[in-house]
Simulated scan of single mutants.
Amino acid sequence: MSDSHAKLDDWLGNERVAKDHITAFPLAALAATLVREKDGDMVPPLWHWLYFLPITPMSEAGPDGHPKRGDFLPPVPLPRRMWAGGRLTFHAPLKVGEHATRTSTIANIEDKTGRSGRLVFVTVQHTIEAGGELKLEEEHDIVYRDASPADARPQQPQLAPQGESWSRTIDADPVMLFRYSALTFNSHRIHYDHPYATQVEAYPALVVHGPLIATLLLDLVHRERPDATLQSFAFKALRPTFAGQAFKVCGAPSADGKTIELWAKDHQGYLTMRATAGIE
């Protein structure tokens, strides 16, 4: 184990408790952004990401727009970070008017070397409670990585599956990305600062938020199976999606109707996110 890895492991078990009042405005604003009706006073699955937002002063913002590292999250010395995926178990929906508590714990830190250089994966466990009732359990995967060298060969993309039962085309333009960044207080510059995204992090355009794509996948389930109750959801981001290029969210329910395979594909048909939802 390297000294840097050992130091990162000092953050294992680090815990943070956040409290929030579940208010109606963020739900109405995201519903308007996704062009769907509100679910009464219920917080739809994954819309809990509109709450418990870390609010840090400008003096604590790093060069990428994120809060500086080394407080709750470990001080990983790599320039790029992305939301890599997650696993969630839904016990009961949050409701407008509730006072909720989220407890977050650094559960795992994994240091690897891949084709593009060093990678550090951090897993954060969250539990959300309200009124003495467990509402949600979540494992959130964050990946940190080196900037890609100029001569790096891009990884071969994977074609998305065929034969979806449901699909919806999404035009994630800069306005949608701005709204989602604002609603989640996400100041990561790759989502709204085109010169930074293209010139500093070398993306071809603004990057669509991984959590937004995951939310759109479950929004597809809601549109196609509004009677279903979500029990679990797992997703993994595989490839960036960029603004200005329409992409699709797709779904295919199992024969017994208890699970739904979900995926997103870009304008070229390449797989960008894969997910599975458990319903009843």
Rank of each mutant, 00 (worst) to 15 (best):
V17W: 02
K68P: 03
K112W: 13
F121D: 12
H66S: 10
I106N: 02
L34M: 13
D193I: 06
R168W: 13
P154Y: 01
L27Q: 11
S232T: 11
R102Y: 04
M273Q: 08
A172P: 07
F72H: 06
A6V: 14
V207N: 02
G86K: 12
I128F: 11
G70W: 01
L30Y: 12
R102C: 14
E164W: 14
V200G: 12
H267T: 13
A214G: 14
M42D: 03
Y180N: 09
A243W: 01
I213A: 05
V143R: 02
K135C: 08
P74W: 02
E60N: 11
A264M: 05
L217N: 01
R145W: 03
H267R: 12
P226H: 06
A246F: 00
L27E: 14
F72M: 07
D173V: 05
V208N: 00
L134S: 07
T198F: 06
G278H: 01
L218V: 15
T103V: 15
P226G: 05
Y192Q: 11
I128T: 15
I142H: 11
P45T: 13
I170H: 03
H99G: 05
M1G: 14
E139D: 02
R87Y: 12
K135Y: 07
A29T: 10
H91P: 00
L50P: 11
T272W: 04
A100I: 15
H140P: 00
G251D: 02
L271R: 04
L212K: 09
E224V: 00
A275E: 09
A61S: 09
I170W: 05
T127L: 04
G65Y: 02
A202G: 09
T127P: 00
D151F: 05
A18D: 14
H99S: 07
Q231L: 15
H5N: 13
P26G: 02
Q231E: 15
T123W: 07
K236H: 08
A264K: 05
R274D: 01
D3Y: 07
S4V: 11
V249T: 12
G86C: 12
P74Q: 03
T229A: 10
T105E: 02
H126G: 08
H66Q: 12
S165Y: 04
N186Q: 06
Q199A: 13
Y180T: 12
A18Q: 09
F235V: 10
S116M: 10
L136C: 11
A205C: 00
G117I: 06
R189V: 07
I260S: 03
V207F: 07
H188V: 07
G85L: 08
I128N: 07
S167E: 04
E129Y: 04
T23S: 15
W47K: 03
G13F: 08
L238F: 07
D173C: 02
H48V: 01
K258R: 00
H194S: 12
I128H: 06
